[in-house]
Design a protein around this nucleic acid. Sequence first.
DNA 1: TCTTCGATTGTCT
DNA 2: GACAATCGAAGAA
Length: 194
Amino acid sequence: MSSKVLDRDFYLRSPQEVARDLLGKILVSQVHHRPVSGIICETEAYDGEVDQACHARTGKTRRNSVMYGMGGFAYVYFTYGMHWMFNCVVGERNYPAAVLIRAIQPLEGLDIIYDIRSPIGEKHWCDGPAKLTKSLGITAEHNGIDLCNPKSAVYLQPGSDIGEEKVIITPRVGIDSTPEPWKSKPWRFLADLC
DNA sequence: TCTTCGATTGTCT
DNA sequence: GACAATCGAAGAA
């Protein structure tokens, strides 16, 4: 198994570019000292303080402070009283932007995911942002870790590139109370695998 | 397959 | 004190 990781430069671009290129990449997490991984197939971009759907819209707070750091680090937050969300911070230092990983296709460590997710069906193990964090054991302790270090508990590997004809772009979801034009920005990216 | 609805707590105003 | 970048169970069709 390769130990290659996506380098820092990959993340030092706009959240839209990174979200698009993250499709097909591999998210790896260490669970009980064993790798559990999946191919990223759905992402969303959150772009700066002006983006009214972004957590940084009200300025820097204790929760979102990681987003103000340099790209290539993990921003993990808790919501709805019971769910963890995993994001990749992108862009330069002091520009708050991130890409939310919304879904992955399980690749490695399936027996471990089964232990965590059973009796839920395999098709629904990682098809939502809170589902994949549960399957990969991602919690607050992963907030702020360096995704460019293969020794980190969570990092990303180059996978296969997804051709333009297999990329579906739609508005972001789960942000009904966000005002326009932000609510309709086409910043959600899905890979049409299969 | 689709729709509705309760769960549950950190964070910010 | 309100709300949240959601999930999954349950019931209807």
